[in-house]
Amino acid sequence: MKAKKIKPKPVSKPLSDTLELNKEIALEVKQKPKSLVNNKEIALEVKQKPKFLVNNKEIALEVKQKPKSLVNNKEIALEVKKKQESEIEFNIASLLKDIRNDQINPKTDMQKEAEEEKVKKTNTSKDKVSEESTSLSISEIDLVLQQLSRCFIAPLGSEIEKMTFVKISAKILQNRRVIQNSIRIVDTNIDISNPFYGPITRSSVNTFLNPDCIPLKLPEEKYDLWKNITLTFDYSIMKGN
């Protein structure tokens, strides 16, 4: 069936906004060259100290890398200070006190026996602690699991297939803070070409870095048991809060 072609007739004036927008598409969006002169997108590498042309003068924008936070610096300084103080106290004050006590109050046999008994008792309780510290209790595991679940913010908008999992590992400091550059994606079944690979793995990694998970709620005396942590994000049974 061939339809009769009819000459177009102008019905209303073109939209001025529309025309401007149409021109703009070609100018700014379609191409992505790296030049200022051509009025097109400019890709500025932060590492290379980006330069701008303002009034024909070249202005170099200083972009410092790896910014050190003030808060962190303060924290570090405080820790160092505390350590120094405690060392001095031990070396001088406690030592002098012991010597003075020994000189002024020489110990009797009875006192010596009592002290020996005390040492024996302490050793027994130490053995008990070392037995307990070979494993984490269910409540200790539950506590940190709850904390980590709260810190895991699901990647909204990402398409996640049912059997997806992401396994990450990290080294933890004794102060229960994660060493950021130790976080590794150990295993996952998401293909790296999947557009959601980045958002899904990032949400897993960020669980460790979420401020609500610093420090982790772990028993300090059992450091050996959690100095390395592996988290598996299992989306096949994942629930949201």
């Binding site: 595991i141 895991f152 913010i153 909204l156 942590i229 598996t232 994000f233 994942m238 949201g240 809060n241």
Partner: peptide
């Protein structure tokens, strides 16, 4: 076995997350 358990560290599976706008 004990040595390896200590070396392996803590292994946890996360099955719950927070669903909220970022």
């Amino acid at each position: 076995t004990l040595f390896n358990l200590r070396a392996m560290g803590l292994d946890l599976t996360i099955t719950q997350g927070t669903v909220k706008p970022t």
